[in-house]
Amino acid sequence: MARHMFRIILLGDSTVGKSSLLRRYTEGSFIPAPCPTVGVEFYSKMMELPPGIKVKLQLWDTAGQERFRCITRSFYRNAVGVLLVFDMTNRKSFEHIIEWYHEVASIQIMEKVIFLLIGHKSDLKSDCKISTEEAEGLAASLGIGFIETSAKSNTNVDLAFETLTNTIYEALKNKEIDLQEGWDGVKVIHKRTCNPQKKRRKPQEKCQC
């Protein structure tokens, strides 16, 4: 069985909750008012797809502020999945989604990227400025999926990442995404190549003793 590695990047305006979403997903925790992300942060999680396929997700959290784009931009190229996150209580963050989409489109070859639109902070129902229908409309026009999530109440967080991973895997299976040398969006590691590494490691451990 082969092991897969997918690289996923989270994009969206600052304070929409990218880091909270990731922290909820990878660590299961929620901090009410976290520090703004500076630069790029890195998370990782193993996931098992139904047919028993192990996928390692490399999750890149980015700073949402405009001036960090020059740094974060260089990471678009090597991503296979993009979560476009907006805050459901913040109209501007929704309007900027198109910008984020084109930002990736200008750098990455579109055939290779799987997008998913995330309406975050769905627990704040009373403050919602964007209706589900409107968000779904945008997602449909871009040809991508849409999920409402909340890191605070832990709704749909796992579902969002699972959906994205599944979509990527399906695309991979249907050869819609082709693997290329030097592109780190998807890595497939066959177990046979793992073995020699293990053999090499063992004697070293003995030496240490």
């Binding site: 600052s14 304070t15 901090i31 009410p32 008012a33 976290p34 520090c35 703004p36």
Partner: peptide
Amino acid sequence: PSLSCACRSLPAQPRVGAMPA
């Protein structure tokens, strides 16, 4: 300027714990 997230960094200084939120 957009400072909406600025205030957040104060109470959440990770290892400081000096400021109650």
